[in-house]
């Protein structure tokens, strides 16, 4: 794994954990609907989620949230 890939994975993990912590559920099917939800969040959580979405396809982010939710249980 390159340095860049490792950094991308950390950003993904951080964003997924932020989403799981804020909402406690799997994100909506559409990215636009998720972005609408972010208006309610504290900046650091919102930015962690946005950074993850910028670095990865939406489906990858949703899978990462699923994994974060399983760990949280």
């Amino acid at each position: 794994m390159s340095v860049d890939d490792a950094a991308k994975q950390r950003v993904l993990k951080a964003g997924a954990a932020a989403y799981a912590q804020a909402f406690g559920r799997v994100p909506p099917n559409e990215r636009e609907a998720l972005e609408h939800e972010l208006d309610e969040l504290a900046t650091e959580l919102r930015n962690a989620i946005t950074a993850a979405l910028w670095a990865h396809p939406y489906v990858t982010f949703v899978d990462a949230v699923r994994r974060a939710l399983v760990k949280a249980v």
């Binding site: 950094a7 950390r10 950003v11 993990k13 954990a17 900046t43 650091e44 930015n47």
Partner: peptide, 21 residues
């Protein structure tokens, strides 16, 4: 630009998010 603070912080922690901010 990824805004990744690096490997020394747990990505699920508040410290990571603060550093990212």
């Amino acid at each position: 630009e990824l805004f990744d603070p690096g490997p020394n912080l747990d990505p699920t922690s508040k410290e990571y998010r603060d550093a990212q901010q």
